[in-house]
Design a protein around this nucleic acid. Structure first.
Lengths: 207, 207
DNA sequence: AGATAAGCGGAGACTGTCTCCGGATGCAAG
DNA sequence: CTTGCATCCGGAGACAGTCTCCGCTTATCT
């Protein structure tokens, strides 16, 4: 990514190739949304108006395609995080973004069902976008930590994992509200421990 | 399930059929674990020592097979919940079970990756086992509620959703600890709100 | 404009899904 | 124990989707 190029080895990206890539990505997004991870790739190529060969040149494997689609969506999410961070008070920003996250994945119905059929689970897929999402939520969390409203011994990624779960298991019509409740729980549980009652557990860091 | 049978309509389960079913289930569990949801069904049939036809008779669709495998695992989990409920103090039992849940899905490596490629997401799949898992965790949560250590305005299923997320996104070696932290956060966030400091947010139930 | 190489896309081999039906097998009655 | 029969087995094969190869098209450079 950030490696210097001794020569312009890739002399020209070529225009129509670029456009085809876009078209495929768009068709793929729709395809995965409608048919899940099992959507036919030839079908997607068709809808994009290209041949199968073209699709496979741009995205050698199914996973590569899924990842590409996913990443393009995730970038928007990261941008939104920066916006919240600039316009809302710390905890509020965090909450807002978390809600957006679930909403986004559901409403814009991203490939939630597709996520986990990627070889090696969603983990590997995240590896790629890690810089993006994790960067985003980490900034939010850190800001909230500084403001003292959030414990400082938790990893931002923990929250992300939970959110992903909620986004994926969308059972029933109460799902939307359930997500809301869970975000509340997560935020409440992330507040600094304050020696309530007699038990002091939370901060146990023993493995 | 609980419908009365006017006659013994199913006159005989037949012995070898039963045994084949078991064999298939076992082979499927291994297959899904190793190759994810995309494991070849014919291959599974092979390993079970039966023909494809036999497999498809017992489990008409891929989803049916996945669900069957999943359910058999989930039953053990429910049993464990009852055990905890009987031997541990409320919150402790809840925490223990939640940890077990993630551990179980990861360590015994259930078909976590397979879960979500079931048509319609994991939701439909859960429909079947709902009685089992949800019954289990609901009992635990209710008990904790009665003891006053847990807010009474939350749904047990909320927690379950979060757990599923953690179980699925297993990125990195710190995953185990992350799960632990998250369970702590969830439990902490489920405590009754107690008008801390000056801000009283948590209980906002406005939609 | 012409040369050149990147890119396109369809034909087709291959792999996996799922059905159908002739034959085998366990079960119950005699 | 034998016979009759419904149940169940399992492979052959039609079908669908994946992915590759290669002759043709098209953008870019001189």
């Amino acid at each position: 990514m950030t490696r210097e190029r001794p020569q312009p080895a890739t002399r020209k990206p070529r225009i129509d190739a670029q456009r085809n890539r876009e078209r495929i990505l768009e068709a793929a997004k729709e395809g995965f949304t409608r048919f899940g991870a099992a959507a036919s790739l030839d079908e997607i190529a068709n809808r994009a108006g290209v041949g199968p060969g073209t699709l496979y040149r741009h995205f050698p494997t199914r996973d590569a395609l899924i990842e590409a689609v996913y990443r393009s969506e995730v970038e928007k999410l990261a941008a939104e995080a920066r916006r919240f961070s600039a316009t809302l008070p710390p905890t509020e920003a965090l909450r807002a973004w978390m809600l957006l996250f679930v909403d986004y994945i559901a409403a814009k119905h991203i490939i939630a069902p597709a996520l986990n059929s990627v070889t090696g689970g969603a983990a590997k897929l995240y590896e790629g976008s890690r810089g993006l999402v994790q960067g985003a939520i980490e900034a939010l969390v850190r800001r909230a930590m500084r403001s003292g409203e959030i414990r400082s011994d938790l990893d931002a990624f923990d929250l992300l994992r939970a959110l992903i779960g909620v986004s994926q298991v969308q059972s029933g019509p109460d799902w939307q509200e359930s997500a809301r409740r869970l975000v509340d729980i997560l935020i409440a549980g992330s507040r600094p421990v304050r020696q309530r009652g007699s038990r002091r557990r939370g901060a146990s860091r023993s493995a």
